[in-house]
């Protein structure tokens, strides 16, 4: 990043350093505590067979109307690339496998549940929250429908009910928060016949992912998608093909909300900058009023002349 150059340049401002520490402190204070045992899912695209049972289970778990499970074996849906939408919080897409055209690669898409989520940082009312276990859930009672979360999300996951005027929802994967409260696995993980979705502690799941890549280095690309992307995500992917070829965005390691939050906390570092600005303006006002009063005594004659002309 080119920020480095600017960083050096700005460092010369001695005045800045003092406030910079304030900004850093307040930004740090805002970080929510994440549990060491926070959850994660490993999506092993080399194991996924594209049965789309996860799509069906997700709909059932979230009370979204759906057809019979048997209808999901229709593979014509793979002809078009699909994205999660209001009526499908997770979708599976198919990609060509150059190594073996008969074993195409299928990739499931859903909310990645970022470690440093942009949507949570962006939400104006805090309707999206990052839970201690790592899941990001949406709060119906708070949301005002501004869709800033959709602007912020680097994976373009949140969807919005554009056809509803009253009570439109932001919909996205909620890591089956309700199911897990009852001690159940997320619906998609539970139904997956191949356990292509491996649920566990994020640290553990990450370890398994590294293990698999190391063991089958001829099969897997040496990249765990989500390990470091935008500061890490709860859902991580391994694949036998480069991720940009699987339509996964190539992202930087910096958390998406990092810069904007720092700016925000910089502006509001304990309200010091606004208060300083207020004081500064008040001083200028005071100085200029005095200056004007002095001048007006000298210039009173001229003013009188002007007024005379006007009347």
């Amino acid at each position: 990043m080119k920020n480095l150059n600017r960083r050096d340049f700005f460092k010369t401002t001695a005045f800045g350093v003092a406030l910079a520490t304030l900004g850093a402190k307040s930004a740090k204070a805002s970080d929510k505590m994440l549990s060491e045992d926070r959850i994660g899912v490993l999506v092993d695209t080399a194991v996924c067979v594209g049965c789309r049972h996860c799509e069906w289970a997700c709909k059932v778990a979230h009370n979204i109307p759906t057809t019979d499970l048997d209808t999901y074996s229709d593979n014509t849906v793979f002809k078009e690339y699909r994205r999660p939408e209001q009526t499908a919080l997770t979708v599976v897409n198919e990609f060509e496998n150059e190594k073996n055209s008969l074993l195409p690669i299928q990739v499931k898409t859903q909310c990645m549940h970022c470690e440093r989520p942009a949507c949570v940082s962006a939400c104006i009312v805090g309707a999206l929250t990052k839970e201690e276990d790592g899941s990001i859930i949406w709060n119906d009672d708070k949301c005002i429908g501004c869709r800033y979360c959709m602007v912020a999300c680097q994976f373009q996951i949140p969807t919005y009910d554009y056809d509803r005027s009253i009570d439109p929802h932001i919909r996205k994967c909620d890591f089956c928060h309700d199911r897990r409260k009852e001690g159940q696995l997320p619906a998609c993980v539970n139904i997956c016949p191949n356990e292509a979705l491996l649920f566990g502690k994020r640290s553990e799941v990450l370890r398994v992912a590294k293990n698999r890549i190391k063991r089958k280095s001829d099969v897997y690309v040496n990249h765990i998608y989500g390990e470091q992307e935008v500061g890490g995500t709860s859902w991580i992917y391994i694949a036998s093909k480069n991720f940009d070829k699987l339509k996964m965005p190539t992202l930087v390691k910096n958390p998406a909300p990092g810069i904007s939050e720092s700016i925000q906390h910089g502006i509001f570092a304990y309200f010091i900058p606004p208060v300083t600005l207020y004081a500064l303006l008040r001083t200028i006002m005071w100085v200029s009023t005095r200056h004007k009063d002095k001048n007006s005594e000298n210039l009173s004659d001229i003013h009188k002349d002007e007024k005379g002309e006007e009347s």
Partner: peptide, 24 residues
């Protein structure tokens, strides 16, 4: 007009998210 739940426009007054630029 633009926000989906226009009847909740007052929410930011009591529901704060200091990290959000939009909130500010």
């Amino acid at each position: 007009v633009d926000i989906g739940r226009f009847y909740f426009i007052w929410h930011p007054l009591i529901m704060w998210n200091g990290n959000s630029a939009l909130f500010e």
